[in-house]
Design a protein around this nucleic acid. Structure first.
Lengths: 238, 238
DNA sequence: GTCTATATGTCGATAGAC
DNA sequence: GTCTATCGACATATAGAC
Protein backbone atom coordinates (compact mmCIF):
# COMPACT_ATOMS: atom_id res chain seq x y z
CA UNK A 1 0.00 0.00 0.00
CA UNK A 2 2.17 2.81 -1.22
CA UNK A 3 -0.58 5.35 -0.68
CA UNK A 4 -0.76 4.68 3.00
CA UNK A 5 3.00 4.92 3.37
CA UNK A 6 3.04 8.16 1.46
CA UNK A 7 0.26 9.55 3.60
CA UNK A 8 2.11 8.60 6.76
CA UNK A 9 5.22 10.28 5.48
CA UNK A 10 3.20 13.31 4.55
CA UNK A 11 1.90 13.55 8.06
CA UNK A 12 5.33 13.05 9.54
CA UNK A 13 6.71 15.64 7.17
CA UNK A 14 4.01 18.07 8.09
CA UNK A 15 4.71 17.56 11.76
CA UNK A 16 8.37 18.08 11.16
CA UNK A 17 7.72 21.25 9.34
CA UNK A 18 5.40 22.51 12.03
CA UNK A 19 7.91 21.67 14.72
CA UNK A 20 10.75 23.38 12.90
CA UNK A 21 8.66 26.47 12.36
CA UNK A 22 7.76 26.48 16.03
CA UNK A 23 11.39 26.16 17.00
CA UNK A 24 12.36 29.01 14.75
CA UNK A 25 9.68 31.21 16.21
CA UNK A 26 11.07 30.41 19.62
CA UNK A 27 14.60 31.26 18.59
CA UNK A 28 13.36 34.57 17.27
CA UNK A 29 11.37 35.41 20.37
CA UNK A 30 14.31 34.42 22.57
CA UNK A 31 16.60 36.78 20.73
CA UNK A 32 13.98 39.52 20.86
CA UNK A 33 13.59 39.07 24.60
CA UNK A 34 17.33 39.39 25.14
CA UNK A 35 17.38 42.62 23.16
CA UNK A 36 14.46 44.13 25.02
CA UNK A 37 15.87 43.20 28.41
CA UNK A 38 19.20 44.71 27.47
CA UNK A 39 18.17 47.81 25.55
CA UNK A 40 14.46 48.35 26.06
CA UNK A 41 11.45 47.87 23.84
CA UNK A 42 12.17 50.95 21.78
CA UNK A 43 15.43 49.41 20.61
CA UNK A 44 13.83 46.24 19.32
CA UNK A 45 14.14 45.93 15.57
CA UNK A 46 13.98 43.18 12.99
CA UNK A 47 17.57 43.79 11.98
CA UNK A 48 18.88 43.34 15.47
CA UNK A 49 16.91 40.17 15.99
CA UNK A 50 18.13 38.79 12.69
CA UNK A 51 21.70 39.62 13.49
CA UNK A 52 21.42 38.03 16.92
CA UNK A 53 20.40 34.66 15.48
CA UNK A 54 22.52 34.82 12.34
CA UNK A 55 19.62 35.37 9.96
CA UNK A 56 18.89 37.94 7.37
CA UNK A 57 16.12 40.36 8.29
CA UNK A 58 14.00 39.09 5.45
CA UNK A 59 13.82 35.57 6.86
CA UNK A 60 12.05 36.72 10.00
CA UNK A 61 9.01 37.55 7.93
CA UNK A 62 8.55 33.84 7.23
CA UNK A 63 7.70 33.33 10.88
CA UNK A 64 6.21 36.61 12.01
CA UNK A 65 4.16 39.23 10.30
CA UNK A 66 6.38 41.96 11.60
CA UNK A 67 7.88 43.59 14.61
CA UNK A 68 4.57 44.17 16.29
CA UNK A 69 3.66 40.51 16.38
CA UNK A 70 6.98 39.70 18.02
CA UNK A 71 6.49 42.44 20.58
CA UNK A 72 3.02 41.13 21.28
CA UNK A 73 4.39 37.67 21.91
CA UNK A 74 6.86 39.16 24.33
CA UNK A 75 4.06 41.00 26.05
CA UNK A 76 2.10 37.79 26.59
CA UNK A 77 5.24 36.20 27.95
CA UNK A 78 5.84 39.14 30.25
CA UNK A 79 2.34 38.94 31.65
CA UNK A 80 2.87 35.25 32.37
CA UNK A 81 6.10 36.16 34.12
CA UNK A 82 4.29 38.67 36.27
CA UNK A 83 1.70 36.08 37.26
CA UNK A 84 4.40 33.53 38.05
CA UNK A 85 6.22 36.11 40.12
CA UNK A 86 3.15 36.93 42.16
CA UNK A 87 1.99 33.38 42.72
CA UNK A 88 4.28 32.47 45.62
CA UNK A 89 3.20 35.66 47.35
CA UNK A 90 -0.44 34.60 47.34
CA UNK A 91 -0.04 31.67 49.66
CA UNK A 92 -0.63 33.28 53.04
CA UNK A 93 -3.74 32.09 54.82
CA UNK A 94 -4.61 35.47 56.23
CA UNK A 95 -6.27 37.62 53.58
CA UNK A 96 -4.81 40.84 54.88
CA UNK A 97 -1.32 39.41 54.92
CA UNK A 98 -1.80 38.07 51.41
CA UNK A 99 -2.99 41.41 50.10
CA UNK A 100 0.04 43.18 51.50
CA UNK A 101 2.41 40.59 50.12
CA UNK A 102 0.81 40.78 46.69
CA UNK A 103 0.94 44.55 46.61
CA UNK A 104 4.58 44.74 47.55
CA UNK A 105 5.46 41.97 45.13
CA UNK A 106 3.63 43.70 42.31
CA UNK A 107 5.55 46.91 42.77
CA UNK A 108 8.80 45.03 43.24
CA UNK A 109 8.29 43.21 39.97
CA UNK A 110 7.59 46.41 38.08
CA UNK A 111 10.58 48.22 39.53
CA UNK A 112 12.97 45.31 39.16
CA UNK A 113 11.91 44.41 35.64
CA UNK A 114 11.15 47.71 33.98
CA UNK A 115 11.58 46.39 30.46
CA UNK A 116 9.17 43.55 31.10
CA UNK A 117 6.70 45.84 32.80
CA UNK A 118 6.91 48.21 29.87
CA UNK A 119 6.26 45.28 27.56
CA UNK A 120 3.07 44.46 29.42
CA UNK A 121 1.59 47.88 29.90
CA UNK A 122 3.23 50.24 27.46
CA UNK A 123 3.33 48.33 24.22
CA UNK A 124 1.30 51.04 22.62
CA UNK A 125 3.27 54.22 22.94
CA UNK A 126 5.99 55.75 20.83
CA UNK A 127 7.03 54.30 17.49
CA UNK A 128 3.45 54.91 16.43
CA UNK A 129 4.15 55.55 12.78
CA UNK A 130 7.87 55.48 12.54
CA UNK A 131 7.75 52.52 10.18
CA UNK A 132 8.54 52.37 6.51
CA UNK A 133 6.34 53.29 3.59
CA UNK A 134 4.45 50.01 3.65
CA UNK A 135 3.39 50.42 7.20
CA UNK A 136 -0.11 51.49 6.33
CA UNK A 137 -0.79 48.19 4.63
CA UNK A 138 0.37 46.45 7.75
CA UNK A 139 -1.81 48.65 9.89
CA UNK A 140 -4.88 47.96 7.83
CA UNK A 141 -4.23 44.25 7.99
CA UNK A 142 -3.51 44.28 11.70
CA UNK A 143 -6.61 46.24 12.56
CA UNK A 144 -8.62 43.06 12.89
CA UNK A 145 -7.80 42.61 16.58
CA UNK A 146 -6.33 45.71 18.22
CA UNK A 147 -4.56 43.16 20.37
CA UNK A 148 -5.46 39.54 20.18
CA UNK A 149 -5.49 38.88 23.89
CA UNK A 150 -5.92 42.38 25.14
CA UNK A 151 -9.37 41.57 26.39
CA UNK A 152 -8.03 38.59 28.28
CA UNK A 153 -5.63 40.83 30.17
CA UNK A 154 -8.14 43.60 30.33
CA UNK A 155 -9.11 43.97 33.95
CA UNK A 156 -6.59 41.35 34.95
CA UNK A 157 -4.54 43.85 36.83
CA UNK A 158 -7.45 44.56 39.10
CA UNK A 159 -8.49 40.92 39.18
CA UNK A 160 -5.10 40.03 40.56
CA UNK A 161 -6.27 41.66 43.75
CA UNK A 162 -10.03 41.39 43.58
CA UNK A 163 -10.34 37.87 44.98
CA UNK A 164 -8.12 38.45 47.97
CA UNK A 165 -9.67 41.82 48.54
CA UNK A 166 -13.20 40.49 48.49
CA UNK A 167 -12.23 37.75 50.91
CA UNK A 168 -10.74 40.30 53.24
CA UNK A 169 -13.76 42.54 53.16
CA UNK A 170 -16.32 39.78 53.50
CA UNK A 171 -14.42 38.30 56.42
CA UNK A 172 -15.00 41.56 58.21
CA UNK A 173 -18.64 41.69 57.48
CA UNK A 174 -18.24 44.97 55.65
CA UNK A 175 -19.98 45.70 52.40
CA UNK A 176 -18.01 47.52 49.81
CA UNK A 177 -17.62 47.64 46.08
CA UNK A 178 -14.72 45.26 45.68
CA UNK A 179 -14.36 45.82 41.98
CA UNK A 180 -13.97 49.53 42.43
CA UNK A 181 -11.53 49.19 45.30
CA UNK A 182 -9.52 46.59 43.41
CA UNK A 183 -9.18 48.97 40.49
CA UNK A 184 -8.17 51.74 42.82
CA UNK A 185 -5.56 49.54 44.41
CA UNK A 186 -4.22 48.47 41.05
CA UNK A 187 -4.05 52.07 39.89
CA UNK A 188 -2.09 53.02 42.98
CA UNK A 189 0.46 50.26 42.52
CA UNK A 190 0.72 50.95 38.82
CA UNK A 191 1.22 54.60 39.57
CA UNK A 192 4.00 53.87 42.02
CA UNK A 193 5.75 51.72 39.47
CA UNK A 194 5.33 54.23 36.67
CA UNK A 195 6.55 57.15 38.75
CA UNK A 196 9.55 55.13 39.79
CA UNK A 197 10.36 54.09 36.26
CA UNK A 198 9.74 57.53 34.81
CA UNK A 199 12.34 59.39 36.80
CA UNK A 200 14.21 58.97 40.00
CA UNK A 201 12.95 62.42 40.95
CA UNK A 202 9.34 61.32 40.76
CA UNK A 203 9.73 58.08 42.66
CA UNK A 204 8.50 57.97 46.22
CA UNK A 205 11.47 58.01 48.53
CA UNK A 206 10.46 54.63 49.89
CA UNK A 207 7.73 52.73 48.07
CA UNK A 208 7.39 50.23 50.87
CA UNK A 209 6.04 52.58 53.56
CA UNK A 210 3.90 54.28 50.96
CA UNK A 211 2.21 51.02 50.04
CA UNK A 212 1.76 50.21 53.69
CA UNK A 213 0.17 53.55 54.38
CA UNK A 214 -2.18 53.21 51.46
CA UNK A 215 -3.27 49.70 52.37
CA UNK A 216 -3.66 50.59 56.02
CA UNK A 217 -5.85 53.56 55.27
CA UNK A 218 -7.99 51.50 52.95
CA UNK A 219 -8.07 48.10 54.55
CA UNK A 220 -6.30 48.43 57.84
CA UNK A 221 -7.84 46.90 60.93
CA UNK A 222 -9.12 50.21 62.18
CA UNK A 223 -10.62 50.93 58.80
CA UNK A 224 -12.66 47.75 58.83
CA UNK A 225 -15.98 49.35 59.57
CA UNK A 226 -15.44 52.43 57.48
CA UNK A 227 -15.15 51.06 53.98
CA UNK A 228 -17.37 52.92 51.57
CA UNK A 229 -20.50 51.06 50.64
CA UNK A 230 -21.13 49.68 47.20
CA UNK A 231 -22.10 52.51 44.92
CA UNK A 232 -24.98 52.57 42.54
CA UNK A 233 -22.82 53.31 39.52
CA UNK A 234 -20.08 51.38 37.80
CA UNK A 235 -18.69 47.91 38.35
CA UNK A 236 -20.58 45.06 39.95
CA UNK A 237 -19.96 44.59 43.62
CA UNK A 238 -18.50 41.36 44.89
CA UNK B 1 30.85 111.98 21.18
CA UNK B 2 30.98 109.33 18.56
CA UNK B 3 31.99 106.72 21.14
CA UNK B 4 28.89 107.25 23.17
CA UNK B 5 26.69 107.05 20.14
CA UNK B 6 28.44 103.93 19.00
CA UNK B 7 28.06 102.39 22.44
CA UNK B 8 24.40 103.25 22.53
CA UNK B 9 23.95 101.71 19.15
CA UNK B 10 25.85 98.66 20.29
CA UNK B 11 23.53 98.24 23.21
CA UNK B 12 20.47 98.74 21.06
CA UNK B 13 21.85 96.28 18.55
CA UNK B 14 22.55 93.73 21.24
CA UNK B 15 19.03 94.12 22.57
CA UNK B 16 17.68 93.71 19.11
CA UNK B 17 19.66 90.59 18.54
CA UNK B 18 18.59 89.13 21.85
CA UNK B 19 14.98 89.92 21.15
CA UNK B 20 15.11 88.40 17.72
CA UNK B 21 16.73 85.27 19.05
CA UNK B 22 14.06 85.04 21.69
CA UNK B 23 11.35 85.43 19.11
CA UNK B 24 12.85 82.73 16.97
CA UNK B 25 13.03 80.38 19.90
CA UNK B 26 9.38 81.02 20.52
CA UNK B 27 8.46 80.35 16.93
CA UNK B 28 10.32 77.06 17.10
CA UNK B 29 8.72 75.99 20.35
CA UNK B 30 5.31 76.95 19.03
CA UNK B 31 5.74 74.75 16.00
CA UNK B 32 7.06 71.93 18.14
CA UNK B 33 4.06 72.16 20.42
CA UNK B 34 1.68 71.93 17.50
CA UNK B 35 3.43 68.81 16.25
CA UNK B 36 3.40 67.11 19.63
CA UNK B 37 -0.26 67.90 20.21
CA UNK B 38 -1.13 66.55 16.80
CA UNK B 39 1.15 63.51 16.53
CA UNK B 40 2.65 62.84 19.92
CA UNK B 41 6.08 63.38 21.38
CA UNK B 42 7.58 60.43 19.53
CA UNK B 43 6.83 62.11 16.23
CA UNK B 44 8.66 65.31 17.11
CA UNK B 45 11.68 65.83 14.90
CA UNK B 46 13.89 68.69 13.89
CA UNK B 47 12.96 68.27 10.27
CA UNK B 48 9.25 68.57 10.95
CA UNK B 49 9.73 71.64 13.10
CA UNK B 50 11.87 73.24 10.45
CA UNK B 51 9.35 72.52 7.74
CA UNK B 52 6.55 73.91 9.86
CA UNK B 53 8.20 77.30 10.17
CA UNK B 54 9.79 77.38 6.74
CA UNK B 55 13.34 76.87 7.96
CA UNK B 56 16.01 74.44 7.08
CA UNK B 57 16.69 71.86 9.78
CA UNK B 58 20.19 73.20 10.20
CA UNK B 59 19.00 76.61 11.28
CA UNK B 60 17.27 75.25 14.35
CA UNK B 61 20.64 74.44 15.83
CA UNK B 62 21.37 78.13 16.05
CA UNK B 63 18.69 78.46 18.71
CA UNK B 64 18.59 75.07 20.37
CA UNK B 65 21.22 72.48 21.09
CA UNK B 66 19.03 69.77 19.70
CA UNK B 67 15.73 68.00 19.89
CA UNK B 68 16.02 67.24 23.57
CA UNK B 69 16.30 70.86 24.58
CA UNK B 70 13.15 71.67 22.66
CA UNK B 71 11.29 68.78 24.24
CA UNK B 72 12.43 69.93 27.63
CA UNK B 73 11.09 73.41 26.98
CA UNK B 74 7.77 71.87 26.02
CA UNK B 75 7.79 69.85 29.20
CA UNK B 76 8.24 72.94 31.33
CA UNK B 77 5.40 74.56 29.47
CA UNK B 78 3.20 71.51 29.95
CA UNK B 79 3.78 71.54 33.67
CA UNK B 80 2.79 75.18 33.82
CA UNK B 81 -0.36 74.30 31.90
CA UNK B 82 -1.18 71.60 34.41
CA UNK B 83 -0.79 74.04 37.27
CA UNK B 84 -2.94 76.61 35.52
CA UNK B 85 -5.58 74.01 34.87
CA UNK B 86 -5.72 72.96 38.50
CA UNK B 87 -5.74 76.43 39.98
CA UNK B 88 -9.43 77.25 39.56
CA UNK B 89 -10.25 73.93 41.20
CA UNK B 90 -8.41 74.85 44.36
CA UNK B 91 -10.72 77.64 45.39
CA UNK B 92 -13.24 75.78 47.54
CA UNK B 93 -13.22 76.77 51.17
CA UNK B 94 -13.86 73.29 52.44
CA UNK B 95 -10.68 71.26 52.40
CA UNK B 96 -12.41 68.01 51.60
CA UNK B 97 -14.29 69.54 48.73
CA UNK B 98 -11.09 71.09 47.43
CA UNK B 99 -9.24 67.80 47.58
CA UNK B 100 -11.92 66.04 45.59
CA UNK B 101 -12.07 68.78 43.01
CA UNK B 102 -8.29 68.76 42.61
CA UNK B 103 -8.14 65.00 42.25
CA UNK B 104 -10.82 64.89 39.59
CA UNK B 105 -9.31 67.82 37.75
CA UNK B 106 -5.88 66.22 37.78
CA UNK B 107 -7.16 63.03 36.18
CA UNK B 108 -9.29 64.99 33.74
CA UNK B 109 -6.28 66.98 32.61
CA UNK B 110 -4.20 63.86 32.07
CA UNK B 111 -6.91 62.08 30.14
CA UNK B 112 -7.93 65.09 28.09
CA UNK B 113 -4.38 66.16 27.23
CA UNK B 114 -2.47 62.92 26.84
CA UNK B 115 0.29 64.47 24.75
CA UNK B 116 0.90 67.18 27.30
CA UNK B 117 0.78 64.73 30.17
CA UNK B 118 3.26 62.55 28.35
CA UNK B 119 5.46 65.57 27.87
CA UNK B 120 5.50 66.19 31.60
CA UNK B 121 5.95 62.68 32.93
CA UNK B 122 7.28 60.52 30.15
CA UNK B 123 9.92 62.62 28.50
CA UNK B 124 12.46 59.96 29.23
CA UNK B 125 11.25 56.82 27.55
CA UNK B 126 11.68 55.53 24.04
CA UNK B 127 13.99 57.19 21.54
CA UNK B 128 16.75 56.64 24.07
CA UNK B 129 19.53 56.19 21.56
CA UNK B 130 17.78 56.35 18.27
CA UNK B 131 19.74 59.40 17.27
CA UNK B 132 22.44 59.69 14.69
CA UNK B 133 26.12 58.85 14.99
CA UNK B 134 26.97 62.08 16.72
CA UNK B 135 24.50 61.53 19.46
CA UNK B 136 27.12 60.38 21.91
CA UNK B 137 28.81 63.74 21.79
CA UNK B 138 25.50 65.36 22.55
CA UNK B 139 24.86 62.94 25.38
CA UNK B 140 28.23 63.64 26.93
CA UNK B 141 27.67 67.36 26.72
CA UNK B 142 24.13 67.13 28.02
CA UNK B 143 25.07 65.00 30.98
CA UNK B 144 25.69 68.08 33.07
CA UNK B 145 22.09 68.38 34.31
CA UNK B 146 19.93 65.28 33.73
CA UNK B 147 17.13 67.79 33.48
CA UNK B 148 17.65 71.39 34.37
CA UNK B 149 14.49 71.81 36.39
CA UNK B 150 13.76 68.23 37.21
CA UNK B 151 14.44 68.91 40.83
CA UNK B 152 12.00 71.78 40.84
CA UNK B 153 9.22 69.49 39.64
CA UNK B 154 10.47 66.63 41.73
CA UNK B 155 7.86 65.98 44.36
CA UNK B 156 5.60 68.63 42.90
CA UNK B 157 3.04 66.06 41.95
CA UNK B 158 2.60 65.15 45.57
CA UNK B 159 2.94 68.74 46.69
CA UNK B 160 -0.02 69.67 44.55
CA UNK B 161 -2.10 67.83 47.11
CA UNK B 162 -0.02 67.99 50.25
CA UNK B 163 -1.18 71.38 51.46
CA UNK B 164 -4.88 70.70 51.07
CA UNK B 165 -4.46 67.25 52.47
CA UNK B 166 -2.64 68.44 55.53
CA UNK B 167 -5.29 71.06 56.13
CA UNK B 168 -7.97 68.43 55.88
CA UNK B 169 -6.28 66.09 58.28
CA UNK B 170 -5.35 68.73 60.80
CA UNK B 171 -8.88 70.08 60.77
CA UNK B 172 -10.03 66.70 61.97
CA UNK B 173 -7.50 66.49 64.73
CA UNK B 174 -6.06 63.33 63.27
CA UNK B 175 -2.36 62.73 63.08
CA UNK B 176 -1.09 61.14 59.93
CA UNK B 177 1.92 61.29 57.69
CA UNK B 178 0.69 63.81 55.18
CA UNK B 179 3.71 63.49 52.94
CA UNK B 180 3.24 59.79 52.59
CA UNK B 181 -0.48 60.04 51.98
CA UNK B 182 0.02 62.80 49.46
CA UNK B 183 2.44 60.62 47.53
CA UNK B 184 0.01 57.74 47.68
CA UNK B 185 -2.77 59.94 46.39
CA UNK B 186 -0.59 61.26 43.59
CA UNK B 187 0.43 57.73 42.64
CA UNK B 188 -3.19 56.68 42.49
CA UNK B 189 -4.21 59.52 40.23
CA UNK B 190 -1.14 59.08 38.07
CA UNK B 191 -1.93 55.39 37.82
CA UNK B 192 -5.49 56.08 36.73
CA UNK B 193 -4.27 58.44 34.04
CA UNK B 194 -1.58 56.08 32.82
CA UNK B 195 -3.89 53.08 32.66
CA UNK B 196 -6.39 55.15 30.76
CA UNK B 197 -3.81 56.40 28.31
CA UNK B 198 -2.16 53.03 27.88
CA UNK B 199 -5.13 51.14 26.58
CA UNK B 200 -8.86 51.41 26.67
CA UNK B 201 -8.91 47.87 28.05
CA UNK B 202 -6.92 48.89 31.08
CA UNK B 203 -8.83 52.00 31.90
CA UNK B 204 -11.24 51.92 34.79
CA UNK B 205 -14.76 51.81 33.44
CA UNK B 206 -15.52 55.07 35.19
CA UNK B 207 -12.61 57.00 36.69
CA UNK B 208 -14.92 59.29 38.57
CA UNK B 209 -16.47 56.77 40.97
CA UNK B 210 -13.08 55.14 41.36
CA UNK B 211 -11.53 58.38 42.53
CA UNK B 212 -14.45 58.97 44.84
CA UNK B 213 -14.12 55.52 46.35
CA UNK B 214 -10.41 55.95 46.88
CA UNK B 215 -10.77 59.35 48.48
CA UNK B 216 -13.67 58.24 50.63
CA UNK B 217 -11.81 55.24 51.94
CA UNK B 218 -8.79 57.36 52.72
CA UNK B 219 -10.23 60.64 53.81
CA UNK B 220 -13.96 60.14 53.98
CA UNK B 221 -15.86 61.48 56.95
CA UNK B 222 -16.18 58.08 58.47
CA UNK B 223 -12.45 57.50 57.98
CA UNK B 224 -11.55 60.61 59.95
CA UNK B 225 -10.42 58.84 63.07
CA UNK B 226 -8.80 55.90 61.35
CA UNK B 227 -6.02 57.49 59.38
CA UNK B 228 -2.76 55.69 59.92
CA UNK B 229 -0.42 57.48 62.30
CA UNK B 230 2.79 59.08 61.16
CA UNK B 231 5.36 56.40 60.63
CA UNK B 232 8.92 56.37 61.84
CA UNK B 233 10.40 55.89 58.37
CA UNK B 234 10.39 57.99 55.24
CA UNK B 235 9.21 61.46 54.54
CA UNK B 236 8.71 64.14 57.14
CA UNK B 237 5.23 64.35 58.50
CA UNK B 238 3.29 67.55 58.22
C1' DG C 1 13.88 28.23 3.42
C1' DT C 2 17.29 31.49 3.11
C1' DC C 3 19.87 35.25 1.41
C1' DT C 4 21.25 39.38 -1.35
C1' DA C 5 19.87 43.46 -2.97
C1' DT C 6 16.94 47.05 -2.98
C1' DA C 7 13.01 50.34 -2.46
C1' DT C 8 11.46 53.77 0.50
C1' DG C 9 11.29 56.22 4.34
C1' DT C 10 12.86 58.03 8.85
C1' DC C 11 16.18 60.61 11.78
C1' DG C 12 20.14 63.99 14.12
C1' DA C 13 23.72 66.67 13.27
C1' DT C 14 27.46 69.09 10.69
C1' DA C 15 30.41 71.49 7.00
C1' DG C 16 30.76 75.03 4.24
C1' DA C 17 28.91 78.22 0.64
C1' DC C 18 26.61 82.56 0.46
C1' DG D 1 21.86 83.91 9.84
C1' DT D 2 20.36 80.90 6.53
C1' DC D 3 20.55 77.25 3.27
C1' DT D 4 22.25 73.32 0.44
C1' DA D 5 24.32 69.25 0.53
C1' DT D 6 25.70 65.61 2.88
C1' DC D 7 27.24 62.15 6.30
C1' DG D 8 26.02 58.26 8.79
C1' DA D 9 22.80 55.72 10.78
C1' DC D 10 18.27 53.88 11.67
C1' DA D 11 14.04 51.39 10.20
C1' DT D 12 10.10 48.16 7.66
C1' DA D 13 9.32 45.45 4.20
C1' DT D 14 9.54 43.20 -0.50
C1' DA D 15 11.44 40.98 -4.97
C1' DG D 16 13.74 37.58 -6.81
C1' DA D 17 17.94 34.58 -7.16
C1' DC D 18 19.56 30.21 -5.33
Amino acid sequence: MPQLTLTAMDIAGRKDRATRAHDQRERIVDAARRIVLREGLAALSMRKIAEAIGYSPASLYLYFEGRDEIAEALGREGYAQLLAYLEPHACADDARERLHALAHAYVAFGCDHPQTYELIFMMHRGRQQQAGPHAHRQRDAASKPPASDARACAACGAQLFAATLSELILARGAHADCGLLAEALWATLHGVVMLTLARAEFAPAAPGPLIEAALDAWFGERAAATLPPAQTSGAASC
